[in-house]
Simulated assay, not measured.
Amino acid sequence: MKKHLLLTGALAGLMALGASGTFAQNVAVVNGKPVPKARLDALAQQLARSGRPVTPEMQTQIRQEVIAREVFMQEAEKRGLAGTEDFKLQMELARQAILVRELFADHQKKNPVTDADMKAEYDKFVATNGGKEYKARHILVEKEDEAKTIIASLKKGGKFEDLAKKSSKDSGSGANGGNLDWANPSSYVAEFSEAMIKLNKGQTTDAPVKTQFGYHVIRVDDIRTAQLPGFEELKPQISQQMQQQRQAAFQQGLMEKAKVE
């Protein structure tokens, strides 16, 4: 009799261990069907990737969400909705979206943007945007004679800012007295840039400058050495831009290799 009790106790202990193992793997059991903890973990990871902190309170909400989905899913299956053509089509579209996302994530993982890559890109940026910056103003008009009249008015003491507000067809800068703020010469079309860099601080062009936009009267208010942000400051932007460029090139390459009839 004592031996039988011992065996019964041992079996009960094993069953308890098995049950605790099951619950460790599952969030709950809904209508007799286990809900795996992996679903909760997957949702938590999605939230974490989106930048939302997964707090203990959030874990509770996620658990409730996972259980609710199981309840609703069981009801949908009971009604035969999983067999409809519309459901099958949506499942195929979801499958495609997930696979494409995984493909791009895999490519990014296998082709990381290194610090050396980013530094090389930053050096190109510095080479293009370094040197001098100009704080300039301009008045843009359609005809050369209009520009000549404005230059004559300036030589007689006319105020550049007032003439810009009155006559410039560049409404953005015109409303601000022709102010273009600080910029590198490479920011402008070649004809404008070439005329601007010939001017000293406070000097205005003696003749109209023709570009594809019309005729300009340009004044340089100030000149300084280019104020460029440091590498560490731009690093996140450079990384994102390079990743996007690589993904775009990867996608384009796949499309070009594909045989589409």
Score class of each variant (00 low, 15 high):
K109Q: 13
G131K: 03
G80E: 05
G18T: 01
Q25N: 13
G230I: 03
L254T: 00
T8Y: 10
P53N: 02
R219V: 03
V260P: 01
E75Y: 10
P53E: 13
L5A: 14
R137N: 08
R101A: 07
F160Y: 09
G32P: 08
V141G: 04
L40W: 09
S153P: 00
V35Y: 05
I197N: 00
P36N: 05
Q45P: 02
F213P: 01
G202S: 02
V29L: 04
N200H: 10
M73Q: 12
S187H: 14
K166M: 12
L180D: 11
V27I: 08
E133M: 05
A136T: 12
H216Q: 09
S239R: 10
R137F: 08
A120F: 06
K3H: 10
Q212A: 15
F231D: 03
K235W: 04
Q245I: 02
L7C: 03
L199E: 04
L93E: 12
A116P: 03
A190Y: 03
S239I: 00
G131S: 05
A76Y: 06
S50L: 13
V100C: 00
L199R: 08
M255Q: 15
F104A: 05
I218N: 06
V220S: 07
L5S: 12
E191G: 03
Y188K: 09
G51V: 02
Q64K: 12
G214Y: 03
L228A: 06
V27E: 12
K109Y: 06
R79W: 04
Q251M: 14
V30P: 05
N179Q: 11
A226T: 07
G177M: 01
E65A: 06
E233V: 07
K143Y: 05
E133Y: 06
Q237C: 06
Q245E: 15
E121A: 13
K259C: 01
V66L: 05
P53Y: 07
T8G: 13
N31E: 13
E142K: 15
P112D: 04
R49A: 11
R39K: 11
V141I: 04
Y122D: 02
T205I: 08
E146Q: 15
L43M: 10
F250L: 09
L17A: 13
I67H: 07
N31L: 04
D222K: 11
K135P: 00
V29H: 09
A19Y: 14
V217N: 01
N111Q: 01
V54C: 06
E77Y: 11
N179T: 02
G157M: 12
P36Y: 08
Q74D: 11
L81F: 15
Q227N: 15
H138D: 15
A105G: 02
Q247T: 10
S153L: 11
S168Q: 09
A120I: 01
L5R: 14
F87V: 14
A42C: 01
F125G: 08
G253E: 13
L11T: 14
Q212K: 14
I139G: 06
G51M: 06
